[in-house]
Nucleic acid binder design. Structure first.
Lengths: 298, 298
DNA sequence: ACAAAAGTGTTTCGACTACACCCATGG
DNA sequence: CCATGGGTGTAGTCGAAACACTTTTGT
């Protein structure tokens, strides 16, 4: 499928271009991505001749392939290095992050099955895998790369930064610790087709960074929700926990959210007030500066 | 150049893919971008069959076309909407930001000739153009879009955020105030070919955002420099001024910079100590968290 | 001497953190 | 009545912003 021509005196190629989607949802307290097969594969589709915009192309093929209507969509990165698919031809993939409401359909993979070390919420699984990975990394990093390793993994006094998910994946890859290579263990997660796991890591990094300065969580929430529920979703995506009283306070201080008047009695203790996203204020695209608290645990 | 085939039951196209570079340098206190012609055009080149990575392709064609060796390179965004070039065929452009040292060669355009409103450093030109643009925007925005307009332009108590350059360009575009359309004035800057001015705005936004959390300015500095010189370059890119004593203090507090021992007597008043970028600490890619102060003027 | 730029000390302010504690409900 | 989650008040901490002031050169 290569049609060389000449321009600027050098070879010009006409190549295949695909769109790849990382569709994220949160189911209970579990983030999931759309990916099926073994090994897992992200949904991908072509540019459509009849669609004017890339996003429209993306929305349509995701709808057709999976039945999901995407809310928020954001372009991530374009991958085009030679040999991505294991063969010589160049494949260009424009990757997107999309947010969708959870459902019970097939094809949803737990995000932290793919990148287990990114889930730092307290739990037996988290702690076990963590020590194993840290040991392997320390062994590999010593001594030249130990500054980088401890920075990325929040060791030696550095804070753990959720949004460095991609850089952590890249370090594991360099260290030969990811599932696609030989030294992989259970703690380094499930492999995917081609470089799809790197694309997922890219999406997670971007999502976590975006969370800190744009109100995108609400794309994952129903119309009315409690602040506790909102906190659970944020924590699920960030992979770590926040200080509850402060979270409650800060939500709404920015005018992000307004009470509906209703209450939810199903939460366990005292009934929680229901809120809705104050969308009126944010219909204008790209309004920034509306921070949600995101954990920066030590 | 369209070769339709079938997959997923829909049309798949093989398309032309180009790389587009926004190469930025700072000459004195003037930021410049590589763009020649009338109207101006960004350097663009093909994916190279023989280059493994996109960045290598980019570096090589920029070197060949312009003689410039790029330091820092970062992928920006992939543009592929139909009709970008004014004709029906789809053109995919993968855009990059590159930083280079200034020189006196041809082809350098002043960045703020293209986006004049982005330069808020005190000066006669800045103030004149600003009131004109603000008036036009207020007229267009009233009343539905005035929240967005005042947010983006730092009106009504909002701070001016340098990194929103792209969003400001997009608003001007929607308002029909950019040079490419009819209502343009001198204050809305010089037009470019196709959507190249949007790409420049994208690059400026990204560069300003990156400045805040990664030590990329040093790619634009010579080996030894004074803190005053560093401040001028940061201010040139940010388009606004910083509080001098604080800037001096903060530089170096993060261990970013170390004295060479030399001094520069050519600065006007008291001679300034020379510094060098503490590169040893930052050879590892993607070390984050090394903030440089960036203006957040009212 | 004085302008001009370099450089230091100190205070203020606001955002985020952490801790302590009260509230309302279901079992 | 007590466990559980919802909710509020308030003190501490840290870094950025602002202000005042000293130092060192060239002319």
């Amino acid at each position: 499928m290569e049609v060389p021509s000449h321009r600027y005196g050098v070879t010009v190629s006409t190549v295949r271009v695909d769109l790849v989607a990382v569709v994220v949802s949160v189911d209970g307290q579990t983030p999931r991505v759309l990916a099926a097969g073994a090994p897992r594969r992200l949904p991908a589709g072509p540019l459509r001749a009849e669609q004017t915009s890339l996003q429209a192309s993306l929305r349509e093929f995701v709808l057709e392939q999976t039945g999901h209507r995407l809310g928020f969509v954001e372009q991530l990165y374009t991958f085009a290095d030679l040999g991505r698919g294991g063969h010589a031809a160049r494949e260009v993939s424009i990757s997107y992050l999309g947010l969708a409401h959870a459902d019970t359909g097939p094809g949803w993979t737990r995000l932290y099955d793919l990148l287990p070390w990114e889930d730092r919420r307290p739990g037996p699984r988290a702690d076990a895998g963590r020590v194993e990975i840290v040991r392997a990394i320390r062994a590999w990093a010593r001594p030249d790369r130990s500054a980088r390793a401890s920075f990325l993994w929040g060791l030696d006094g550095h804070p753990w930064r959720p949004e460095l998910a991609l850089q952590r994946y890249e370090l594991l890859w360099e260290a030969g610790l990811v599932a696609e290579s030989s030294d992989a263990t259970e703690a380094t997660g499930e492999g995917m087709v081609q470089d799809h796991r790197r694309i997922v890591a890219t999406a997670l990094s971007r999502l976590r960074a975006t969370l800190q300065y744009r109100p995108v969580v609400f794309e994952l929430m129903p119309d009315a929700f409690t602040r506790g529920r909102l906190q659970v979703v944020v924590e699920a995506l960030a992979g770590s926990t926040v200080h509850t009283p402060n979270f409650r306070r800060l939500v709404g201080q920015h005018g992000l959210v307004e009470p509906t008047g209703g209450v939810d009695h199903g939460t366990g203790g005292r009934p929680a007030r229901l809120y809705r996203f104050h969308r009126a204020l944010f219909t204008e695209r790209d309004l920034v500066g509306t921070k949600l608290p995101v954990p920066r645990a030590r």
